[in-house]
Simulated assay, not measured.
Amino acid sequence: MTVTTDGGRLDLLRGGPAQEFTVTLRNGNTRSYEHLLPVFQLEILVDDVLASERPPQDGFVLERWDHAARTWRVEPLRIANDVLDHSAYRGGRALARDAVRVERYRLRALGSGPAGSTPLMMSLVDTDAPAGASLQRVRPAYVSLPHTTRRN
């Protein structure tokens, strides 16, 4: 799994435009997958915004381009400083041996919410992995993208 964006990082402005990035999945010739799920997470930004004043999702919106419908669709984005057990995830799409899939995403920082820097973490989770499987089997790929959100 690779991720690319203009400038190699996400640089967002609260209330400003979304920034696009591309995730490319390249499967090898060893096995196919029936259910691979891209999972996205940002750690909580620590700044002067009180917890009671934080908007849902800390004011971030992640979207994926739905090529068939020709529209952007909201995707789950976890805001947390811990790791969610991979067994909690369901769904995903197939990826055949030797297949390549390219997905377009964009991240937006709404007008209210915290500012600061933390990487956007992306895991590719095999939701069919058996209980007790190795981390490499459950999460065949992981990447992060540097990210900063500023205020005007």
Score class of each variant (00 low, 15 high):
44 I>F: 00
45 L>V: 05
147 H>P: 01
88 A>Q: 15
36 L>T: 15
25 L>E: 11
62 L>Y: 01
61 V>Q: 08
70 R>Q: 14
110 L>D: 05
37 L>T: 14
33 Y>L: 07
56 P>L: 03
122 M>D: 06
101 R>N: 08
9 R>K: 14
77 L>G: 03
23 V>K: 02
81 N>Y: 04
144 S>P: 12
35 H>T: 14
99 A>M: 11
98 D>P: 10
62 L>M: 05
18 A>P: 04
18 A>H: 06
33 Y>T: 06
16 G>K: 00
80 A>N: 04
107 L>N: 12
139 R>Y: 07
8 G>M: 12
59 G>P: 04
56 P>T: 10
26 R>D: 09
84 L>W: 05
126 D>V: 13
12 L>Q: 06
66 D>I: 04
27 N>G: 11
22 T>S: 04
44 I>K: 12
59 G>L: 09
71 T>R: 11
141 A>T: 13
58 D>Q: 13
5 T>E: 02
73 R>V: 14
64 R>P: 13
129 A>P: 14
102 V>T: 14
139 R>W: 07
135 L>E: 08
132 G>T: 12
26 R>F: 03
20 E>G: 07
130 P>L: 07
47 D>C: 01
107 L>E: 14
43 E>P: 02
151 R>K: 02
44 I>H: 10
72 W>N: 06
51 A>C: 05
67 H>Q: 15
110 L>Q: 12
